[in-house]
Design a protein around this nucleic acid. Structure first.
Lengths: 200, 200
DNA sequence: GCATAGTTTCACGCGTTTCTGAAACTAGTT
DNA sequence: AACTAGTTTCAGAAACGCGTGAAACTATGC
């Protein structure tokens, strides 16, 4: 199935993008870094391929097409599409259009702090807040229980203390996340201050 | 199968522990909180049941037997045993012995900061450090590549910058974790200072 | 308005992870 | 030393999450 017209077009496009040779191959450095970020993302509760795809986009000097990602990461078209839309929902990848080009291109958010603050914000709402709510519910349930006779007063007392400890911790977590988010959003330079007072 | 001797012993033991009635039932508050912590643990990359088991131990005013956990959480004995040893490996649960009692009892580490700093320490070593290493490897691979002709110089330049950004971020993460760990280990009161400079 | 290239969606299957149940093991008791 | 109660280990089963491939959809060009 000869496609010379297409080939010529692709070549012209590559030339327009800076005349790079081997523009579509996956470099060793890209492989190493995207795999590493992929692993890290898993730990953070994302999918491995989200990390890999995002990384390739982040390391690229230009927006990439889904097809390019599919080739370089050896994924199916479907997986690339789903991964990209998931990344887009997290706001860490953007679809960009090029004039007179009907393909969709994607690029990574290049401001890491913006990205992180966005993810933290989304996640703290879903996770820490619901944990706080549940802990408050637990405390309430314990309160209701207290009205019944003097059942296991010691166990109740200890349990109340412990749940309050957990609540305090969860609220502190929320506060830290909020601080991180607010500061990161406007200014990344505050963070080195974190070092203050450190031991070695 | 009558076991009066055993029953009497158990009753005596319960009495010694404060004469609590319903000592072995799962309270509503315990259910709510342990489920919440269980979910949170999953997000943090642990197993749901690790969170549930730890929580019950933490909320208990006394060490518990594996059997009690099995009943209250509706798990098999095997699952409880495996979960407990995993928690013990993380140092967040301890096996305790009672004089003249051949059962094994378990209790949760009750110092939350100690626990958290321990987990952070174990995990940062495994994860952030290896990410840093991989990023450095990526940079090295990029360097080797540069020796070949002037391939895609722009792509190389951008990629180097981006990897360096990631490295900076990863190192900052390491620094923050270290600070958190060091401080949490000796003193939990420093954390409210995190609030400094926050908006609302 | 049909054909074509590209993209998205989705049901299914595969690989992992987690739990169960049974057997092996340990230690205290008679 | 045999029995009993309790605990741990392990192989297999169930549950889950993820990626594939095919089909549906979209939009551009002819």
């Amino acid at each position: 199935m000869p496609e010379s017209a297409q080939d010529v077009l692709a070549a012209a496009e590559a030339a327009a993008d800076g005349g790079e040779s081997g523009a579509d191959e996956l470099w060793e450095s890209e492989r190493i870094v995207s795999d590493a970020i992929g692993r890290l993302m898993v730990v953070w509760g994302f999918k491995r391929n989200m990390g890999r795809v995002w990384t390739l986009l982040y390391l690229s000097d230009q927006p990439l097409r889904a097809e390019a990602l599919r080739e370089r990461l050896q994924l199916s078209a479907g997986a690339v599409s789903m991964t990209l839309s998931e990344l887009a929902r997290w706001g860490v990848v953007r679809k960009v259009f090029r004039q007179g080009d009907r393909h969709d291109y994607y690029e990574a958010e290049s401001n890491l702090w913006k990205m992180i603050s966005r993810v933290l914000r989304e996640r703290e709402r879903a996770e820490v807040l619901s944990a706080i709510e549940a802990l408050e519910d637990g405390l309430a349930a314990l309160g209701r229980f207290e009205h019944h006779a003097a059942q296991a007063p010691r166990r109740q007392r200890v349990q109340r203390e412990r749940i309050e400890q957990l609540l305090e911790l969860a609220r502190l977590g929320r506060t830290m996340l909020d601080a991180l988010i607010d500061h990161a959003r406007m200014d990344a330079s505050w963070l080195p201050r974190f070092r203050l007072g450190r031991k070695a």
